[in-house]
Structure formats: C-alpha cells, structure tokens
Computed example of a mutant assay.
Amino acid sequence: MKSNNSAIAVMQQMLQERCIAEPMFAIKMANPSKSMEGAINYLCSQIQKSGLCVVDNDTVMNLLVHYFDENEIEEGAKVNCNSTTVRDSR
C-alpha cells in the first residue's frame, strides 16, 4: 500500500464526518480487529478487482464504510497502489 498522507487524511476526515452523522458507526470503527491500514488495503484491493483506475468519493466512502460495517471481511493482500483524493470545491 502506498497511499499518500494527504489522501489518508481526507479519508479519515470523511469517516469522522460519518461518525458525527451516525454515532453507531463510531462504535464499528472502534472494533479492535479493524484499522485504517486494513480499510485502505480493502479499498485498494476492491478497486483493483473492479479494473477501474479512478473512483469517485462516494465509491471510496462506500467501500470504507463496508469494511468497517462487516465483521467477517477479508482485507485482501496488500496492493501496490497510489491513492490521491480530490475534494469537490463546489
């Protein structure tokens, strides 16, 4: 996994916003068997499986939330990927 720090920070911010909007999600994120590194590995592996090179923020968020929502999810092997994010400035 090669995600740049700013991409990870944006993903963490997105997840924090979700925790504020849905406090029960914060409990799921606190699961000791889950981690941000695991979430990013899962995200990259799912994007690689899809064959896509670019995904939108909604897709990223859906995959990250799915990782934390499911107890029995496989992170997948570490994927060599570069992650960047672009926030919509509208």
Score class of each variant (00 low, 15 high):
M29Y: 09
Q48H: 11
M36H: 06
I40T: 04
K34R: 12
M29G: 05
I27H: 09
L43H: 00
S35L: 04
S33K: 15
V54E: 06
C19R: 11
K49V: 08
M36T: 04
E22Y: 12
M61P: 03
K49H: 08
K28E: 14
L43N: 01
M61E: 12
L52G: 04
Q46H: 00
N41C: 05
C53Y: 13
L52C: 13
I40A: 10
Y42F: 14
S50Y: 07
A26T: 08
S50R: 04
A21D: 11
S35T: 15
N62V: 09
I40N: 00
V54N: 12
S33Y: 10
C44W: 00
V60R: 13
Y42R: 00
V55W: 04
I40H: 01
Y42P: 00
K34C: 05
I20G: 08
N41F: 00
N57F: 07
K34S: 07
N41I: 01
L52W: 03
P32G: 13
C19D: 14
F25A: 09
I27V: 15
D58K: 15
M36S: 06
S50E: 08
D56W: 05
P32F: 05
M29I: 07
N41H: 06
A21V: 05
A26S: 14
S35N: 07
M29L: 11
P32L: 09
L43W: 01
A39R: 01
I47M: 06
E37G: 09
L52S: 12
E22P: 02
N41M: 06
N31H: 13
M29N: 06
K49S: 08
Q46V: 00
A39K: 00
N62W: 04
V54S: 13
G51H: 10
M36K: 04
L43G: 03
V54F: 10
M24P: 02
S33I: 07
A21K: 15
K49M: 08
S50W: 07
V55H: 10
S33W: 02
G51R: 13
Q46F: 00
S50K: 07
G51D: 10
M29E: 05
N62Q: 15
F25W: 10
K28V: 02
A26E: 07
A26G: 03
M36G: 03
A30T: 01
I27E: 15
P32C: 12
K49A: 13
Q48N: 14
I40F: 10
E22A: 11
A26M: 13
I40V: 15
M61C: 12
S35E: 03
M24K: 15
V55N: 05
P23F: 08
A39V: 01
K49D: 10
Q46S: 06
D56H: 09
I20L: 13
P23T: 04
I47C: 08
F25V: 03
S45A: 15
A30I: 03
Q48E: 15
K28D: 10
E22S: 05
E37I: 14
L63T: 04
